[in-house]
Simulated scan of single mutants.
Amino acid sequence: MLGNFQHSNLRIEVEAEENTIRESLLYPRKLQQWLWPQSLDSNLPEEFYTGLKFTSRLGPLAILHQVDVAESNHLRLILSQGIDGFHEWYWGNGWVQSRLEGISLLPLNLAQTFGLIRLREFLTNNQTQL
């Protein structure tokens, strides 16, 4: 794989309960709502499960994901093609942590930061609509 090895570990505070965060990360329909501009396969199940494989796209770039861990407060995705590495999520009441490591030509830290900001906005908007 061409690119540079990159790693980043970010943690943010969010105004959301653990269950709301879980749904936003483990339910592809909800994940797709805040993940823009990245898009997911359209034929995904209601919830991620260990062993599931799917593709996401960022413009012309395809990233293959394999769900390695899907638990009540932990998601780990093994990445290949556009990024060779992994993306790991942990969460609890009021916080989300994202750890990303891989080889890619993409600026992974920038994409990770943008994704966390979008997730926080999504969770905040959903809380105010309740």
Score class of each variant (00 low, 15 high):
residue 88 E to Y: 09
residue 68 D to L: 11
residue 73 N to R: 03
residue 127 Q to V: 01
residue 102 G to A: 00
residue 29 R to Q: 14
residue 27 Y to G: 00
residue 104 S to T: 08
residue 5 F to E: 10
residue 115 G to K: 04
residue 26 L to E: 05
residue 36 W to C: 05
residue 46 E to W: 03
residue 128 T to W: 10
residue 32 Q to P: 05
residue 58 L to N: 00
residue 4 N to Y: 12
residue 10 L to T: 07
residue 90 Y to P: 06
residue 6 Q to H: 04
residue 48 F to N: 06
residue 125 N to A: 10
residue 11 R to M: 05
residue 83 I to D: 01
residue 48 F to L: 08
residue 21 I to K: 02
residue 3 G to D: 07
residue 94 G to L: 02
residue 117 I to W: 14
residue 75 L to Y: 07
residue 85 G to V: 02
residue 87 H to T: 06
residue 114 F to W: 13
residue 41 D to K: 13
residue 70 A to P: 01
residue 10 L to S: 01
residue 101 E to D: 10
residue 70 A to M: 02
residue 72 S to T: 07
residue 63 I to C: 07
residue 44 L to A: 14
residue 121 E to T: 10
residue 50 T to A: 11
residue 16 A to D: 00
residue 72 S to W: 15
residue 111 A to D: 03
residue 96 V to P: 00
residue 84 D to C: 11
residue 58 L to G: 01
residue 23 E to R: 14
residue 50 T to E: 15
residue 9 N to W: 11
residue 41 D to A: 13
residue 105 L to D: 11
residue 56 S to N: 13
residue 55 T to K: 15
residue 73 N to E: 03
residue 124 T to K: 15
residue 49 Y to I: 02
residue 115 G to F: 12
residue 69 V to M: 05
residue 37 P to E: 02
residue 20 T to I: 08
residue 55 T to W: 13
residue 14 V to N: 10
residue 23 E to K: 12
residue 12 I to K: 02
residue 66 Q to L: 08
residue 21 I to Q: 02
residue 24 S to F: 01
residue 57 R to T: 05
residue 66 Q to F: 00
residue 101 E to V: 13
residue 115 G to M: 12
residue 2 L to K: 15
residue 115 G to W: 10
residue 116 L to Y: 00
residue 87 H to P: 01
residue 69 V to R: 05
residue 13 E to G: 15
residue 22 R to A: 12
residue 102 G to M: 06
residue 93 N to S: 10
residue 44 L to V: 12
residue 52 L to E: 02
residue 19 N to W: 08
residue 119 L to C: 05
residue 31 L to H: 07
residue 64 L to N: 14
residue 10 L to G: 04
residue 98 S to D: 15
residue 94 G to K: 03
residue 77 L to E: 08
residue 109 N to Y: 08
residue 26 L to F: 11
residue 91 W to S: 00
residue 60 P to A: 04
residue 7 H to I: 10
residue 10 L to E: 11
residue 119 L to E: 01
residue 97 Q to Y: 04
residue 70 A to E: 05
residue 81 Q to R: 14
residue 120 R to S: 07
residue 66 Q to I: 02
residue 51 G to N: 02
residue 39 S to D: 08
residue 51 G to R: 00
residue 70 A to F: 08
residue 104 S to F: 00
residue 126 N to T: 11
residue 79 L to Q: 09
residue 57 R to W: 07
residue 103 I to W: 08
residue 72 S to I: 04
residue 91 W to T: 01
residue 28 P to W: 00
residue 43 N to W: 02
residue 98 S to T: 05
residue 17 E to N: 02
residue 98 S to A: 09
residue 11 R to E: 13
residue 105 L to C: 10
residue 86 F to W: 07
residue 120 R to D: 09
residue 74 H to C: 09
residue 45 P to Y: 05
residue 1 M to N: 13
residue 74 H to S: 06
residue 86 F to R: 06
residue 8 S to W: 09
residue 46 E to A: 12
residue 118 R to I: 03
residue 5 F to V: 11
residue 90 Y to D: 15
residue 87 H to I: 03
residue 71 E to A: 15
residue 102 G to I: 00
residue 111 A to L: 15
residue 121 E to V: 07
residue 95 W to Q: 09
residue 127 Q to F: 03
residue 2 L to Y: 12
residue 88 E to N: 08
residue 10 L to P: 00
residue 10 L to A: 01
residue 36 W to I: 13
residue 40 L to M: 11
residue 38 Q to L: 15
residue 76 R to A: 03
residue 91 W to N: 06
residue 19 N to L: 13
residue 29 R to L: 13
residue 95 W to I: 04
residue 33 Q to D: 15
residue 39 S to Q: 10
residue 125 N to K: 07
residue 60 P to F: 06
residue 12 I to R: 04
residue 50 T to I: 15
